[in-house]
Computed example of a mutant assay.
Amino acid sequence: MQKTALIPYADLPRAHHERYVLTSTVDVFGVAHWLLGERAPQPGGDVRPFDALVVSVHPGGGVELTELSAVRARWPYLDRLPDGGFVVAASRTRRDEDSDQVQVFDALGRETSNFSVGDAIEHLLVDEAGHIWVGHFDENPAGIRRWSATGRLAWTSDNARIPGLFDCYALNVSGTVAWSCPYTDFPLVEIRPDRPGRPVRVWTNRVRGARAVAVHGDRVAFYGGYGEERDRLAHGELTETSVESTDVGLLTPADGPASGRRRVVGRGSRIYVQTEPFTAWGVFDLSS
């Protein structure tokens, strides 16, 4: 089986390794971000607001620091808005926390608004226009939705006829387009809400359990799977109605196999991957 090594992409500067990595992502412009706290989240109980540091590493190597005040998410998601602000969202909500599940911060780290997008967030990604795409796992039937940065629901998968959408396993947002590969049928889905007449296209797909997807022209790659297939890299080509498999291999860290959890982000032709302790991003680019 062919092995493809991730290419080192971005590293959290060592000066910040003493802090706890609450979450990390790579935004739509290719900048890597780490949300850091003083300690690990504690399960149960009330969440007391805390200050957090965002460390942003640009593709050229430049580092930017942003202090966020009064973060309230215990298990947060993070992404950056095109205006330099940040979105922080709690993956789970309780009824008394629902109204401020999502916090929007300006470029100076001050909270400017908050709203709810619903419980059971599996993916949260911001596009180039500042829309917030949210994919839910199976404890919330909302599926996939697109929100404005002020909390207005701008698109929903409710009537999109996406087969078997019970859990948004994989979500890729690039430009203003989203791609998904949802459980249970695992079709490849292209979502363009602003395209007249046909905002959603669906291709049948035989690859099961992928956690990330990359698309370049008529080529596609699926990363992840169940059990021993968690590092599987499956390639395919798009026909009019289906994804035809062309090759299956493994996607491995640059320094060899790694144990522990993975964090993945899909952006266009790229799949970014982190392994514990989540201080470095590697990248696979389908276009190269």
Rank of each mutant, 00 (worst) to 15 (best):
K3H: 12
D11G: 10
A15K: 11
A15M: 13
R19K: 14
T23F: 10
V28H: 12
V31E: 15
L35V: 02
L36M: 15
A40R: 14
P43G: 04
V47Q: 10
D51Y: 07
L65S: 11
T66K: 04
V71K: 04
W75G: 05
R80K: 11
L81E: 03
A90W: 09
Q101N: 11
Q101C: 13
F105D: 00
D106H: 03
T112R: 14
T112F: 09
S113E: 11
G118N: 10
I121S: 00
H123V: 09
V126Y: 02
I132H: 05
I132P: 01
W133F: 11
H136C: 02
R146V: 12
P163Y: 10
G164L: 06
Y169Q: 00
A178H: 00
W179M: 02
S180L: 08
C181M: 02
P182I: 00
E190P: 05
R198G: 07
V200K: 00
V202E: 11
W203Y: 06
R206Q: 10
G217L: 12
Y223L: 05
Y226F: 05
E229G: 06
E229N: 13
D247L: 08
V248Y: 09
L251Q: 02
L251K: 02
T252K: 02
P257K: 12
S269R: 00
Y272E: 02
F278R: 10
A280Y: 07
D285H: 11
L286P: 01
S287M: 09
